[in-house]
Design a protein around this nucleic acid. Sequence first.
DNA 1: TCTTGACTTAGAGTATAGTCTAAGTAGTAT
DNA 2: ATACTACTTAGACTATACTCTAAGTCAAGA
Lengths: 116, 116
Amino acid sequence: MITICEVSMKYHISKDALRFYEKEKLIGPIRKNKSGIREYQDSDLERIEFVLCMRSAGLSIAVLRKYLELYDKGDNTKEMRLNLLLNEKKKLKEKIKCMNDAFKKLEYKIKLYQES
Amino acid sequence: MITICEVSMKYHISKDALRFYEKEKLIGPIRKNKSGIREYQDSDLERIEFVLCMRSAGLSIAVLRKYLELYDKGDNTKEMRLNLLLNEKKKLKEKIKCMNDAFKKLEYKIKLYQES
DNA sequence: TCTTGACTTAGAGTATAGTCTAAGTAGTAT
DNA sequence: ATACTACTTAGACTATACTCTAAGTCAAGA
């Protein structure tokens, strides 16, 4: 049972973003106390970690919602989920390759500056 | 002397984006013929390649404009340009590391699916 | 009791990076 | 001459992912 403020600090993400992710069904619905205040459980935190990790990899809100929707539908969506993940993995691999290439070019450009 | 259509196909980028980059001062101003049609020179293409490469690395339009602005101002902006590039390189390195971590987690997740 | 501060909501606003539309022009094909 | 196609412009619109605002509730401290 940890508050939105604590979750926000723990993961360096805004409270607004946490509520936004909940509205977009990436997490939650988070349990609320009698005053309507969110109380995050350990299971919520795991899901938040997963979402943040995948977001940092560039997976879109829409793709994550799709995945988590399937997940919540149960076991017979496993193959669809796997395919979705494989597809995202492929895209991510491309992207990383692309960024590595750009990184090398940037390094080279910097080297030229430092030589002159 | 190559047309916007050819440049667009060569680099797999829309004609709108090419005009947008020009408006944002990332490229050009591109020479135009007496009818007002753009005619891209080799030097334009080099700049386009640089811009696309850096965009694929995640450098923002604003950062690129800043860099190219300094570049067009001449030699005494060299140190500022170098610092700008070093800063972007640092950010890029972080981002790539972050994406690699996420990639590994994605792979692990996929492995779990494939084992079950 | 009153104020303070942190929370709540719905919905408006922002930043980034294009993308699309409308209206017009120029050169070519019939 | 007329139609067609590709180009031009300014400016409106879109998608994504938040971020902010306004109005209100609740619990605790002075």
